[in-house]
């Protein structure tokens, strides 16, 4: 028997979904429409008038080597953020799943970073690794390593990846832990009797059974890395040095609000939208097939 609420008229159901529709319209459709509209114009240098140019903004972008570099940077950045945050979270969840005593305290502590706003997290890591006064860079110097992410592009990338991944670990940890605890104990025990040691059990039993969780987190984390890491990058590196940490979203911001090239910025956000949409579709098409529900 299916439980289903039925409405007599059409007014009430429409009224009930209205808030959601309004929110989606105001915060998604309207700006997306604006972006598409603006992407076809170039504003004059004083920002007073704009000129219709059709697809010129797009053709220019796709031949701009800085823009193409931002693509590569984004790919590297989001892969690293996703792999690091999910890898660490999974490892922590595996350990938390094994201990019983004090696991709730452990869990609570691990959730805290999630409550830290990205910009605050960025400042926090910035202080830690600040070349002159940072605690971490001081220790690194003791070890004979000269840390300076304001000059070294690789170090800058490492730092923003670390800061972005850190805020994400709690979230991933919670989902992984819930996923692990949903696997019946007896299945693991059966594998132990069948002769599988811990890592063997992990790769042949636990990981496959965890795949729905992993897949979900993969999608969510990539979207996160594409968009929500803006605050971290803005506070730590502002996209530098030499654009080495300028990911697509950051370029939308810097070209549009700093460079005042609203047309190009709008075109970039349209491209970004398409890329993320495409990525998500691809993930669902190819990875989901290998997921065991």
């Amino acid at each position: 028997m299916e439980k289903r609420v039925t409405f007599k008229g059409k007014k009430l159901p429409l009224l009930l979904i209205l808030p959601q529709v309004i929110i989606t319209a105001v915060f998604f459709f309207w700006p997306a429409g604006q972006a598409i509209y603006q992407s076809a114009f170039i504003p004059d240098p004083f920002g007073l008038k704009s000129q219709f140019v059709g697809f010129d903004n797009f053709t220019f972008l796709l031949s701009d080597k800085y823009y193409l570099a931002a693509f590569t940077t984004t790919a590297i950045f989001s892969s690293l953020v996703t792999v690091v945050s999910m890898g660490v979270a999974l490892w922590l969840a595996l350990m938390a799943d094994r201990i019983i005593k004090g696991s709730s305290a452990y869990r609570t502590l691990l959730i805290w970073p999630y409550a830290v706003a990205p910009a605050v997290a960025g400042v926090l890591w910035l202080f830690l690794f600040s070349p002159n006064i940072g605690l971490a860079s001081w220790y690194l110097e003791k070890l004979g390593y000269q840390w300076n992410h304001t000059l070294n592009g690789g170090e800058a990338m490492g730092l923003v990846v670390l800061a972005s991944a850190w805020g994400r670990i709690s979230y991933n940890f919670l989902f992984f832990l819930a996923g692990l605890q949903a696997i019946p104990k007896s299945v693991i025990e059966a594998a132990a009797i069948d002769g599988a040691h811990f890592w063997r059990r992990f790769w042949t039993i636990v990981f496959p059974l965890l795949s729905p969780t992993t897949f979900f987190l993969l999608v969510v984390n990539i979207v996160y890395a594409f968009f929500e890491t803006f605050g971290v990058i803005h506070t730590i590196t502002s996209g530098g040095p030499q654009q080495s940490t300028t990911i697509l979203v950051y370029k939308v911001f810097s070209d549009g609000f700093v460079g005042q090239d609203l047309g190009s910025s709008a075109a970039q956000s349209v491209i970004l939208l398409l890329v993320v949409g495409l990525l998500t579709i691809l993930q669902f098409k190819f990875i989901e097939r290998r997921v065991h529900y």
Partner: peptide, 29 residues
Amino acid sequence: EPMDRNIAMVFQNYALYPHMSVYDNMAYS
């Protein structure tokens, strides 16, 4: 360790490996 005792166990909820075929379930050990 359980695996070194040369025993086999049948669980109340069967504890089959849900993502493996019947063949693979039996062939696992």
